[in-house]
Design a binder for these strands. Structure first.
Length: 403
RNA sequence: GGGCGGUUACCCAAGUGGCCAAAGGGGACUGACUGUAAAUCAGUUGUCAGAAGACUUCGAAGGUUCGAAUCCUCCACCGCCCA
């Protein structure tokens, strides 16, 4: 791959929110690649992950995919676990301060993060480090010195702080340390390239570069990845929005979740979380635009690709077949929870016992709305004894085999 | 530390003694239509009850009243201004 192609691939899916910045970063990236080639040394690339929960979702894999691209081009990739930054909580993507985690939680989460990351990254070529390694050694004086490189105004100008200020929501002092800590990570590792989401723009472009410069290093190149919308297609994918595709979900589930993503978000999914080259993606989009490819088929290709990244081709193929059977041909799924009918139980009893509705009122509502079927027949009442064993379907996708 | 304002259901938010289980919007859910997409249309969205209705709920606890989300007292938390 020549330098131009490398730059194109590495800049795919990036978003800077500012054309000039993007141009500048692209130019710097090119320069670094050339320089690295000349000197015959790999670039030091990293992305940090704060282990704030146990489950990673597709949104987290965007930057991993980007790291993987660097890895495949022969560069040195560090998967940095933010053991210390997680203690502070990144204010970037929240309108509220994050809950403070204990050191034990952080340690436990960090472990599972690395394991999950290796579904995308090449374990043999990945360094795993924790930022506690160097952040724990900073003294108060060190921290104060770091703070001398920034003004309060710079922080208040940040979009999310500015919003909170405007709305009268609290901004805690400790939140401002986050950027300093992250910037220091970059300096401590003498980073060439830092990868992160658009919410990290400030931390990377302002904090990281400035601190490196202050410490006499060449400022890093920020590769800022776009944000993946969740399954609703609008809000960013995040656990609290309930629109995530967990990377630990089953192949069938992953395939189905990707299929439920609105068309409008397809392009982002292709660019941010697949292994396809910019060229191949263009081809798919052209075909859809020209009408030679059905948008549904483009999405099936996407769902299959994503499932394959995590489960391999065979499982992705199987997931696709299940999907076709279940939803395109309206057959009931092969596997579903089972329930043993007890004497005298009504339809309501079964629905509630199986957790298919939260309360009897909700169940009543579902029946009234013709949302409950037994072997395909709509049930009119819920207070009658359960008619006969069979497949109970509540809504579109909740199934129960009643025996 | 002082002054003022706020806390309503999943979220935002209206409501300042009875007509309040509580407007409106968003979200979620169901049905129709579809490509398990979007858009659109119709409906549901505190719990129990077949229905009438009953019960619990407007930050917490007490109180006034025939009756309180609404008035009073105290407590907790948040914001703004002044230090």
């Amino acid at each position: 791959m020549n330098i131009d192609e490398q730059v194109e691939l590495l800049m795919q899916g990036t978003e800077y929110g500012d054309e000039d910045l993007k141009k500048a970063m692209t130019a710097e990236l090119r320069e670094r690649l050339i320089q690295a080639q000349k000197e015959g040394r790999p670039l030091r690339v990293y992305c940090g992950y704060d282990p704030t929960s146990t489950d990673l979702h597709l949104g987290h894999t965007i930057t991993m995919r980007k790291l993987r691209q660097f890895q495949d081009l022969g560069h040195e990739v560090t998967f940095l676990i933010g053991s210390y930054t997680a203690l502070v909580g990144d204010p970037s993507d929240k309108n509220k301060a994050r809950p403070i985690l204990t050191q034990e939680q952080v340690a436990a989460n960090g472990k599972t993060y690395a394991d999950q990351a290796f579904r995308v990254l090449d374990p043999a070529k990945t360094k795993i480090r924790e930022n506690g390694e160097w952040l724990s050694k900073l003294t108060l004086v060190d921290l104060i010195r770091l703070g001398q490189n920034f003004t309060v105004q710079q922080f208040l100008a940040r979009e999310n702080f500015a919003n909170r200020l405007e709305k009268g929501e609290p901004i805690f002092l400790h939140e401002t340390f986050y950027a300093l800590m992250q910037g220091y990570d970059a300096a401590a590792m003498e980073t060439d390239i830092q990868v992160g989401g658009t919410d990290q723009l400030f931390n990377i472009i302002v904090a990281g570069r400035k601190l490196q410069e202050a410490l006499g290093q060449k400022p890093l190149v920020g590769v800022i990845c776009g944000i993946l919308p969740g399954t609703d297609g609008i809000q960013r994918m995040s656990k609290s929005m309930g629109n995530i595709v967990p990377i630990t979900s089953t192949a069938d589930d992953m395939y189905g979740k990707v299929m439920s993503v609105p068309d409008a978000a397809m392009s982002k999914y292709y660019r941010l979380v697949t292994r396809l080259s910019p060229h191949e993606i263009d081809e798919v989009e052209r075909a859809v635009a020209a009408g030679t490819m059905h948008p549904r088929d483009a999405k099936m290709k996407l769902a299959r690709e994503i499932t394959s990244i995590f489960y391999g081709d065979a499982a992705a193929e199987a997931a696709q077949e299940n999907f076709i059977k279940m939803f395109q041909q309206k057959e009931v799924p092969d596997e579903m929870p089972e329930y043993s009918l007890k004497a005298g139980e009504t339809v309501f009893d079964v629905i509630l016992a199986a957790g298919m509705a939260e309360s009897k009122s909700k169940a009543r509502g579902l029946i009234d709305q013709k949302g409950v079927r037994l072997d395909g027949e709509t049930l009119e009442r819920g207070d009658i004894p359960f008619p006969h064993p069979g497949v109970l379907q509540v809504g579109k996708r909740r199934f129960l085999r009643v025996k």
